[in-house]
Nucleic acid binder design. Structure first.
Length: 620
RNA sequence: GGGCCCGUAGCUCAAUUGGUUAGAGUACCGGACUGUCGAUCCGGUGGUUGAGGGUUCGAAUCCCUUCGGGCUCGCCA
């Protein structure tokens, strides 16, 4: 008689000693089988955990006979009685104090041998696991992450709901935006030759919500960017998108801190201290060389421009003369300076060259006969300024100094890279587990030397600080934005701003960015129109949900926290998307592939065909 | 687009550095075993060394091309 699998009594992580004696019905997959000739043990797995089921040939010969044939990943239903394990408890399982004595078992669905082993010990490579993601998802470690992601998303929704925010959906088929990342385009059949763009973020829609009187909006929303991937970058990702009307920076930041605190509570069970510390953009750049500092480690940058100005070392004096800076970072003996070898410093220098640095001067401080001296590397060039240099850098005997010289931005970039790598190489211990902070006072604009024009540091709708508005037309470089980034352990986790709500200011900013009135009209006419009708002051923020889950789950790749992620080449190994479409589909859309693209596709199809033929021939 | 690394049984890896018939663990199949729990023991099946070309008496190993994967720079307001 068939077991009613739709009427299970428990999940596989639930049963405890107090359930002993109960008759239960379980369903799930065979995670492991152990056949002793007599007794057969099955580990039954579902989303919630694992329960051991025992089949005894003497008491239940029929069930035992079937149980012997079960293999990994067979889908089964079991009926039996919960029994205490006595001295044979398994401390590794929450259900380890009990087992189910199987009275009956049904095979619901037989499994082929799987392409890799479905357990948390599996060593199968990621590509294979993504190709068979439906099997990978059965692994407890992945289930745990999916659960965490759900819990975090729920905490976020509950929080914003309690704070009076509405979740309102925004279109996925929308309009291509200028600047920013490349858009994913979707052709329109109804309007041949016209394309939708998938949103990089619902930025303008949420601003219009505020102008539309929605007051407070928060949405968990999918966003798309057709750029090259990284471990922490996917072409489609999920944002927690927030916007509030009648607010100043403080109000948004306070609201965000409450949300973040909620995420930490649900994911880690800890209460993070509030308010989060703040650091200005310029201080962060000066001290860490980056606008998203990881302050859990020392190794701060020191400016030594004035000290080395006249030391005679050309690399330094050239940098100073052309208006640049010289900075250094010190590795103290307490931070493992004694473990730095020539091989390590040379390797680091090579890496720095790889990101565009000319090199990286290095030296070491020692106690000499006449006080402090430099002993290696560029020692002889900087020896004359040894004492003041060490004083300025805060270096003492045994410490290493790594220098960067040149344009401020380049020096910051290079020394930040060096700092990050040295932290890894020296395996420095972080001072705390979670370093949450706000970076504020960003400049409104950055000058791009290649294109000879300004770009928005944040985006073109960010408001300038009130006291800087007058400088917009006179000294754009000096204008600071009402923008704020939330940084966690050196990763940007959220970024937002107060928006421009005055039409004239928005026009001025567009002008500064080289967006003509005509262009603005084509691309943002709806925004410019909206700004004519009583737009309230408003602002907001967006967090990368995937990144939050990644950090809170302790994973190193976004692929570990997304159910169906894409590989570095932006393809889905499971579905093999993106794929070609038929000529009919293209014709209907009025699209013709460029000849070189078409040729390449045909070439690829032909070689695939050849492989198939060869395999076929061998079969016969 | 650039740089670096990887590709050998279904899976994870070896192969004495160019030398005989490419091995092991695991999975799978058969057998043994009544307390295991990443079960154990015995036996067996399983290979286009990613693909194509070249060098060589001889290639998994060297060279070229190509495909796929990963990290990274550019890029990602």
């Amino acid at each position: 008689m068939a077991i009613p699998y739709n009427k299970r009594t428990h999940r596989n992580g639930e049963l405890r000693a107090e359930n002993a004696g109960q008759t239960v019905r379980l369903v799930g997959w065979v995670a492991s089988y152990r056949d002793h000739g007599g007794m057969v043990f099955i580990d039954l797995r579902d989303r919630e955990g694992i329960t051991q089921v025992k089949f005894n040939p003497e008491t239940d010969p029929q069930a035992h006979a079937l149980a012997r044939t079960l293999r990994n990943e067979d889908c089964i239903a079991v009926e039996g009685q919960v029994a205490l394990r006595g001295t044979n408890i398994n401390p590794k399982l929450p259900t380890g104090e009990i087992e189910v004595e199987g009275r009956a078992v049904d095979l619901l669905s037989k499994s082929d041998p799987t392409p890799f082993e479905i357990d948390d010990f599996t060593k199968a490579n990621e590509d294979l696991r993504l190709q068979y993601r439906f099997l990978d998802l059965r692994r407890p470690a992945i289930q745990k992450v999916l659960r965490l992601r759900h819990d975090i998303a729920k905490a976020v929704r509950d929080y914003f709901d309690a704070q009076g925010f509405l979740e309102i959906e925004t279109p996925v088929l929308t309009k291509s935006t200028p600047e920013g990342a490349r858009d994913y385009l979707v052709p329109s059949r109804v309007q041949p030759g016209s394309f939708f763009a998938l949103p990089q973020s619902p930025q303008l829609f949420k601003q219009l919500f505020m102008i539309g009187g929605c007051d407070r909006y928060a949405q968990i929303v999918r966003c798309f960017r057709d750029e090259d991937l990284r471990a922490d970058r996917q072409p489609e990702f999920t944002q927690i998108d927030v916007e509030m009307a009648f607010v100043q920076m403080e109000d948004v930041m306070e609201a965000v801190e409450g949300c973040v605190a909620g995420m930490f509570r649900v994911a880690k069970g800890i209460d993070v201290p509030r308010p989060f510390p703040r650091i200005s953009y310029s201080e962060s750049m000066d001290r860490f060389g980056i606008d998203r500092p990881d302050m859990r480690f020392g190794l701060e940058l020191r400016d030594v421009t004035d000290v080395v100005r006249d030391c005679g070392f050309q690399v330094f004096s050239n940098a100073v003369q052309s208006g640049g800076v010289v900075k250094c970072l010190v590795v103290k003996t307490s931070e493992g300076a004694d473990r730095l070898t020539r091989k390590i410093t040379d390797g680091l220098t090579e890496e720095l060259k790889g990101i565009g640095a000319g090199g990286m001067p290095v030296t070491k401080v020692v106690s000499g006969t006449n006080g402090l001296e430099f002993s290696t590397g560029v020692a002889k060039f900087v020896q004359p300024v040894c004492e003041p240099l060490c004083r300025q850098a805060g270096a003492g005997p045994g410490d290493f100094l790594f220098f960067g010289a040149g344009k401020y931005g380049d020096v910051c970039k290079h020394l930040h890279h060096a700092r990050t790598r040295l932290i890894e190489i020296l395996e420095l211990k972080p001072s705390t587990e979670w370093n949450l902070l706000w970076v504020v006072d960003f400049p409104m604009f950055e000058w791009d030397d290649t294109e000879k024009r300004y770009f928005s540091t944040h985006h073109p709708f960010t408001a300038p600080r009130d006291e800087d508005v007058d400088r917009l037309s006179t000294e754009p470089d000096k204008v600071r934005a009402k923008a704020y980034d939330l940084v966690l352990n050196g990763t940007e986790m959220a970024g937002g701003s107060i928006r421009i709500h005055r039409r004239d200011v928005q026009q001025t900013v567009f002008k500064l960015l080289g967006i003509s009135e005509e262009e603005a009209k084509i691309k943002f006419q709806f925004l410019m129109e909206a700004l004519r009708f009583g737009a309230p002051p408003h602002g907001g923020i967006a967090f990368g949900l995937d990144r939050w889950v990644m950090l809170l789950a302790g994973k190193e790749s976004l692929r570990d926290v997304i159910a169906y992620p894409k590989t570095q080449r932006a393809v889905c190994p499971l579905t093999e998307a993106p794929g070609p479409v038929s000529d009919d589909q293209l014709r209907e859309l009025g699209i013709d592939l460029r000849p070189e693209v078409r040729a390449r596709l045909e070439e690829k199809a032909a070689s695939a065909q050849q492989t198939v033929h060869r395999a076929h021939d061998e079969e016969q």
